[in-house]
């Protein structure tokens, strides 16, 4: 319990360094190249997906993990997403799904421009860093049918 609180404090301390958005190129409906050329890590990605303080993916999506209870159903289940989409397509949808569908309910996880009324504590920084995006892409690409 105490560790959870300390973790939050740690995240706060890391914020100033995380206020960067990596450049990317959209080709068709994908971002083919990894952000900043970074390599993703599946295990770290799995943790990011579950993290309720950052990506919080499970608030809307289900993942194929029987240990997780009460996952959301606003977005489609993520089981098999690695078979349905290429890593580049996943990358674009996590970075900014409104580039695929302007009405998408899913937040853009690596964008700071064009947002309205952003709380000062989050202003100017994306939800996920370039490294976290790559970790999530690595994890989701691994969820194959």
């Amino acid at each position: 319990m105490r560790a959870a609180g300390l973790l939050l404090l740690g995240l706060c301390a890391a914020w100033p360094a995380a206020g960067q958005v990596a450049p990317f190129v959209v080709t068709d409906d994908a971002i083919a190249a990894p952000l900043l050329g970074l390599a993703g890590d599946r295990a770290r990605g799995a943790a990011v997906v579950r993290n309720r303080e950052t990506a919080n993916c499970l608030i809307c999506h289900a993942i194929p993990d029987p240990r997780e209870r009460f996952m959301g159903d606003v977005g489609p289940p993520l089981a098999g997403v690695g078979s349905r989409l290429t890593p580049g397509q996943i990358r674009l949808r996590v970075v900014d799904p409104t580039l695929v569908n302007p009405a998408s309910v899913m937040p853009a996880y690596h964008r700071v421009a064009g947002l309205v009324n952003v709380d000062a504590r989050y202003s100017g920084r994306p939800v996920l860093t370039a490294q976290e995006i790559e970790d999530v892409v690595a994890y989701l690409s691994g969820l194959e049918e």
Binding site: P107, A108, N117
Partner: peptide, 9 residues
Amino acid sequence: ETRQGQLNL
């Protein structure tokens, strides 16, 4: 109806 915040909702 305005999308707001870092989560743009």
